[in-house]
Structures are given as C-alpha cells and as structure tokens.
C-alpha cells in the first residue's frame, strides 16, 4: 500500500478507535474522575456488559438496542454495588483508597471468573448484518464494526455532557466532587448523588461493552488489556473532564493505529501504557486539568 494510503487509513481508524475508547473510559471518568473512587473493576463490568449483550443478541436483539435496555439493570447493579462499597468504607470513615483499590481488584476478579464459569473461556461475538462489511470512501476503508460503535460514542458523550452541565442533578454531581459539606448544607444528600453517579457509570459500562463486542469478539479477561488504556485516557483527559475524555481517547487511538500500521499490531497494547506513564511523569493534571 502507498504511504499516503497507509497513513490516511491509520488516522481514520485511529479516530474511530479513539471514539470507541472514549466510550470505554466514560464510566471511569465519572467514578474515578468525579467521585475519586478508583474503580479498577470498570473494565470487568464492561466485559460483563458485553456478555449480557451477546446473550441478548443470541435471542435476536440488536446489540445497541440490547445495551440501551440493559442500562436499566446495570444502573441498578451500580447502585447496589455502591451501597456495598459505601457501607464497607465511606460510612465507617475509613475512606482508605488502597483498601478500596483492593476491593475493586477482588470484585474485578470475581466478575471475570464468574464469566469463565458461566460461559467458558471461548471468544464470544455478536451477529449483526453490518459486521464483515466495510465503508469505502476513496482510499479510506473502514469496517462497519468500527464505524457503528465509533458513531455511538459521540452521541453518548454528548448526552452525558448535557446531563452534567444542563441538569440540576448533573450540577449537583459535579459539586459533590468538590465538597460534600457544601451540598449537605444546601439540602442535597451527597450519598444519594454519589450512588446515582455510580449507577450511571455502571450503566455506561454496558454501552461500552456493546461497543467493544461489536468491534470484535471478547473473552472473560478482555477487560485486563483495557485497564491501562482507560486509566490513561481519564488521567490524560484531566480528571472528570467529559470533552477531554473524547480528545484524549482519540489521541491514544491515533497513536495506537500508527504503531499498528508502521510497527506491528503486537506492540499496540503498550502504547497506552507509555502514554499513561508519560502523562504521570510530565503533566499529572492531564490535558484539560486545572492544575
């Protein structure tokens, strides 16, 4: 292939990939970025979401429709999960980050193994008419299995951004990140706001799972590769910045696509980690962080 072809296609697929990554990181951007809860179980929840979508798809449902329906039970799951977390740590006044990290790590393992026990370790995928076909536009060739989730991402991000900036509960959510006490004085219960936020983040995990499984087949451990990537995006974006998440994710997507095109696909998983380390070393506040 010509150099120009190669680089154009790498850029296009990088943007598409980045858009999908943004969707994967979005839930974490709320839990870690806004609530400061280091939810390392988010990628595992995402894979659980992907399996739920596969299950629904096998019964004839379109994966995106299935994911939208599944946001309701996942929201509920998030609420229950947060309640458990809060009882274990925050209410006891032991808001120890390292212990909660360990808890989420344990939860993540339990989810993975539960999936192995229930579905085995084989790769699972969804069946949709557009998988296998590609959009051809001049020299650009983009498979629909990337294009569809890549278009879903900006819609979800926009919806979330509008919610966070235009609605009362979205604003309360952002306020809670700054100061619990201020809110409880103004009559809003910070615990219920946080619970709600955690529910939204978990609901986003199922949308992310759908995007992931449309892109390619998943196995129970597929979340592990994503941990470095999603944290890299959230940190690079500047904690809690929703538009920043999209920009950071696209940057990482492009970087990976270029490495894949010019080096080897087997090096791509290392890219996000290098970017994460670089960000932590040079600008820990991220691209859009205040400080």
């Amino acid at each position: 292939m010509e150099f120009l072809d190669l680089i154009t296609n790498a850029l296009v697929s990088g943007v598409a990939l980045g858009s999908i990554y943004a969707l994967l990181a979005l839930g974490l951007s709320i839990t870690f970025g806004v609530l400061h809860i280091p939810n390392v179980a988010h990628p595992a929840l995402m894979i659980a979401g992907a399996y739920a979508v596969v299950f629904a798809n096998a019964r004839g449902l379109d994966p995106i429709v299935a994911a939208l329906l599944l946001t309701v039970p996942f929201y509920a799951l998030g609420i229950v999960f947060y309640e458990f977390y809060a009882r274990a740590f925050e209410k006891r006044g032991r808001g120890n980050t390292l212990q909660s990290l360990t808890l989420f790590f344990g939860v993540s393992l339990v989810i993975e193994i539960a999936l192995v026990v229930a579905f085995g370790t084989d790769l699972r995928s969804v069946e949709v008419p557009y998988v296998g076909r590609s959009l051809e536009f001049g020299i650009v060739l983009l498979p629909y299995r990337f294009l569809v989730p890549a278009l879903l991402a900006p819609v979800v991000i926009l919806a979330l951004w509008l919610y966070m900036t235009r609605t009362y509960s979205g604003l309360a959510l952002r306020a809670v990140a700054h100061d619990d006490r201020a809110l409880s004085i103004s009559g809003v219960n910070p615990v219920s706001i946080k619970r709600h936020a955690f529910g939204i983040a978990t609901a986003l995990a199922v949308l992310a799972g759908a995007a992931l499984v449309i892109t390619g087949p998943v196995d129970p451990f597929a979340g592990r590769v994503q941990i470095g990537r999603v944290f890299a995006i959230v940190v690079l974006a500047g904690l809690g910045s929703i538009p920043g998440t999209l920009v950071a994710a696209i940057l990482i997507g492009i970087a990976e696509a270029l490495v894949t095109a010019f080096l080897s696909p087997s090096w791509a998983p290392g890219v996000a980690f290098a970017i994460l380390l670089g960000t932590l070393a040079i600008r820990p506040s991220g691209l859009f962080g205040a400080r």
Partner: peptide, 25 residues
C-alpha cells in the same frame, strides 16, 4: 520513579498496566 511522586492510586494503576506491557514486550 515515574509514578510515585503523585498519589498512590496512580502507582497501583501503573502496575496493572506494567504487566500488559511486559507481556507485550
């Protein structure tokens, strides 16, 4: 050296990713 100057959480996250990177290598 790369991660400890900031919060402990970042160190932990970096170690998760370290496994993936060495495996990739």
């Amino acid at each position: 050296y790369l991660t400890l100057r900031i919060q402990g959480v970042y160190f932990s996250i970096a170690t998760v990713a370290l496994v993936v990177v060495l495996e990739t290598l």
